[in-house]
Design a protein around this nucleic acid. Structure first.
Lengths: 204, 204, 204, 204
DNA sequence: CATGAATGAGCCTTCATTCAT
DNA sequence: AATGAATGAAGGCTCATTCAT
């Protein structure tokens, strides 16, 4: 019984935590991005402001958690998609494609992940491992492999991976801000080819 | 005499303004990025809080001013360097080189320009024209020219320009955060070639 | 139970609101008329400055509320008393008598109503309908009636009503400042007769 | 020589003081009643803010001085006008007429004298002798005289004098706020007759 | 455990007054 | 004497956090 009770309680706590996190994400996703105050979060989560502090130490902890969750989700998506390909080029391309899809569908999430979070973590203040780093790591693995197989020229693969992600990030953000370009297909093709070409794929 | 006096006063005022701006820049550059409150700015500038308002209408005006100043500085550098080249590829390369030099020398400035400011201006909140937009514009001009001359394949040149700047930005920021890579020369070469290759320069 | 709880809370909130309003009234009534700052109000009400904003949107709202409250109280008194008379002269006299009574009993309230509030609303700044206007309106109705019945000479009844209230106001204020005159009865009689005579009651 | 010099200096000081006072009065007279800050006063007076403190101990002293000056001027006017009449009724009427004229011509001055100043001096805080008191005193003298001569019924002449001034004050203020009534002549006649009748002039 | 009213430090801004020049 | 830049206390308001119920 006791065990059960504990389990139930833990479950309930989980639920509450999730509710709070969901509330934050909803607020972050709102078009006009309402105030991200504890009060508004609690309101959206349907709890009292004080209750918040039973689940999270403080506001910062909450934000950290939300960010982690978002990251995990995104990486999950990417990994699933990549799993279908064995070729390094294809994997990179698939990564970009899934990211484009996801980000364009959830623009505010993209903003949070690509802008709001990193901005709090620049320079030596890198408290999180953020999505960009994860993406870079993934990209680097592929690029390393391609270089090993001599499919691309010798290069500082870390730099390339960073550039790869950076080019991608900037374009996505511009689309989020100004709306996707009219010829969306050409635009996406340009972006993908930009990065693929940049790696230096040998033309056979 | 009167003339002299006025001159001196103006000079002194300039100095104070500069002192305040410098204080903001310093705060923005601090590792732990202290609060950018009027109080902290005044403290850092060695003035009373009220004095601040003798030099700037309000906080927002100050921030605008700082941003503008930083932009002007950077663009000046870039334009000077680019002026020496007529060829599109060379100009783009020169732009990257001067930016690398400047940013690596003034890392804090780079951080402000590439991170702090853009983050306040994402999406529809584009009150400033920020450096990235200016850089993108410059890059696009060169890329358009290259495409017109059929030196690179057909592409959405705006996307390419954005990707170009994005790749660059990300790499620079990573260097700022983690320090330049050991083989700095290879790293820089990789970055530059990454972007040049990405444009699709036809190999002759 | 829930109902009870809600009731209790509402009651408590009412209490706080009242406490705050009372605090303002007290400050307004103090001899040296302390500063009417949020801080001083909160202090007097025994709450934190932030708490104030749980009960009133801002300072202006509070002041409005206080004023309205005072007005309602006074008008209630007057209307009750007037209800007992049908004759225009009697109604006017009753109005004066009830006002004299009330004001002399609650001198601070009188001061607020007759001095503090109007002074914030002079000229084109008439955001409130203040007691004086209401009193004037009431008086005018009676005077109009008297004139229609040809019980008083032809006159600009609005001017007369204003003068009526003004004469009254000034005398009351003088009594508040300097204390009622020794021969209080004569004094009150003089005031009432002054205004009644002024209207020009035809001597039969 | 020394004497002369001192005289000149005193004269100059007088001039400055006057300039400052004039500045305040101008600001008080402006339709939109700009901020009455030391800075704005100094600006209008054509002096530096610091200079102000060479002529007045502080802001309050200045305001007191301005008020005194205004009062003196007004009383001067009134006394001159009254001097032409020997009859008590005529004197009272003349007083009212000159006040109406003056106040309607300088509405903002009227506002200052009748509203702004008294409001700072209510109740036991009567630091100034304000115009109203002076007017009341004058009126009382006349009313006493009339009563002594048995031209009006027995009454508390102080109360009557206060009521007299109060009725007058209120009407003037209403004209200042809302503009003079259309039938200005009837309105003025009503006001004057109101007060005259109120005194109880025996109809012969 | 949950609540949400209460807290108070902190923010931006104004302005009467001072003081070095 | 005159200047006006500098001062800093004070004002209204916000919001992360606490605590009595």
């Amino acid at each position: 019984m006791v065990y059960n009770k504990t389990e139930k309680i833990l479950e309930k706590q989980q639920l509450r935590s999730q509710k709070i996190i969901k509330a934050v994400r909803e607020i972050l996703s709102e078009k006009d991005m309402g105030k991200v105050s504890i009060k508004s979060i609690a309101q959206k989560a349907g709890i009292a402001t004080g209750t918040f502090y039973l689940y999270f130490a403080d506001k910062e902890t909450l934000i950290d958690t939300v960010v982690q969750e978002i990251y995990q989700e995104l990486l999950e998506h990417i990994k699933n998609e990549r799993a279908q390909y064995s070729n390094g080029f294809d994997k990179l391309q698939a990564t970009m494609e899934v990211c484009i899809q996801l980000f364009m569908k959830e623009k505010h999430l993209a903003k949070t992940v690509l802008v709001d979070v990193p901005q709090k973590n620049t320079a030596l203040n890198s408290k999180y491992t953020y999505i960009e780093n994860d993406l870079i790591r993934l990209a680097k693995i592929d690029i390393d492999e391609l270089m090993d197989k001599q499919l691309i020229p010798k290069q500082d693969t870390l730099v390339s991976a960073i550039a790869f992600v950076g080019a991608f990030r900037e374009v996505i953000l511009s689309w989020i801000s100004t709306g996707e370009p009219l010829d969306s297909e050409l635009a996406q093709k340009t972006l993908i080819e930009y990065n693929m070409r940049a790696l230096g794929r040998y033309i056979i």
